[in-house]
Design a binder for these strands. Structure first.
Lengths: 190, 190
DNA sequence: CAGCCCATGTAATTGGTTACATGATTTT
DNA sequence: AAAATCATGTAACCAATTACATGGGCTG
């Protein structure tokens, strides 16, 4: 899809940045829905530069350490906007190892089943708590064209998704427990 | 991670199957949380066979058409179970182009913003409807050790996730509409 | 001066998709 | 007879992670 390209152009469309700063931005801000390591970013910057979509100038930190501050070009901005202003299909399929394991969970022992679900529950709980802490940093919905508005929206998305994941696991636990007390009376299965 | 390996072993642990049937299984049953094309499956089967985790015998369909029916070996079963009976981290990050686009949506025109959100809303709505139709096929929660129990659980997971996604988009739409009427009175921004 | 962060790259490998390639069987 | 589906594979390419490799700058 070449999505990394547009993630980078999008970030540079906001602020000029070095590859290192882009990498930090992926780790922090975009982490929930996109990520890329520096080993993927630097080559991509090289090719975006070659394509004339971004430029850079070198700045010196201290005495010798060079850093390349990248800026988006007009052509790059046009390219980004033409990507940004297109519709896109929602994600109906996504690789999720937890769900795969859960799908096969009937081949595991009944003890492990509960242990697995309980562990998943706790992890989701912890992650949700963390997200809610971030959400509380917004005392109010960020206004207008504020940069933080997007941050708020994607954070809300993460919160709602995580709440749903937690509800789901709790539903699974409940059904698994039901099953356990049922099957106690008929343990003589294959 | 080598997850494909365990997805295949897990399926073969249920039933003996050909590569073609595995491929269909990925397309239908596992699709929501794992997928693999035949071009990835056939080489994987080759290497699992070489590792002694699966075996096959050849069956003839019609006059000449050969198909390889794969069976899991004892060693394969042990390997699968040792994977299956381990805890795993929840997914806190997943690449999602829709969310990325939404994150950058402030660089788009206000008209397009609403168009994008409305389109996403409709897509989520349609997908949810489809999932709920599948859910109705279960008149009751499948019992005990029934194969369908896992199917039911992952379907419930998909339903809850999709409901959350829809709620989120609706919240975004609401906020975006608010913003529009607000910003009408102060359109003189940079 | 040690340890951590800043800063930039490349190489090797894995995971995954798309395209290439072939041919039999069944259904309409 | 054509079209859809069954059936199996390989090749080329793209995306992404892990590891390799180097060195400066800042803080305690």
């Amino acid at each position: 899809m070449g999505t990394l390209k547009y993630a980078i152009l999008g970030l540079l469309n906001r602020n000029a940045m070095t590859g290192y700063e882009l990498s930090k931005e992926f780790e922090t801000t975009l982490f929930e829905f996109w990520n890329a390591k520096h080993s993927q970013i630097y080559p991509e910057l090289k090719s975006l530069n070659a394509a004339g979509l971004i430029e850079y100038h070198v700045e010196i930190t201290g005495n010798v350490l060079e850093k390349k501050v990248y800026t988006i070009t007009d052509e790059g901005r046009r390219d980004f906007l033409s990507w940004e202003e297109t519709l896109c299909p929602i994600q109906t399929a996504t690789k999720d190892e937890s769900r795969l394991r859960l799908f096969f969970l009937d081949s595991a022992s009944s003890d492990f089943r509960l242990q697995f679900l309980e562990d998943q529950r706790q992890q989701h709980q912890a992650h949700l708590t963390h997200l809610l802490e971030n959400q509380q940093k917004f005392d109010t919905v960020p206004p207008k064209e504020a940069r933080a508005f997007s941050d708020y929206l994607v954070l809300r998305g993460a919160v709602l998704r995580e709440e749903a994941a937690l509800s789901w696991i709790e539903e699974c636990l409940q059904l698994a427990n039901q099953r356990k007390s049922n099957s106690a009376s008929q343990k003589n299965r294959a």
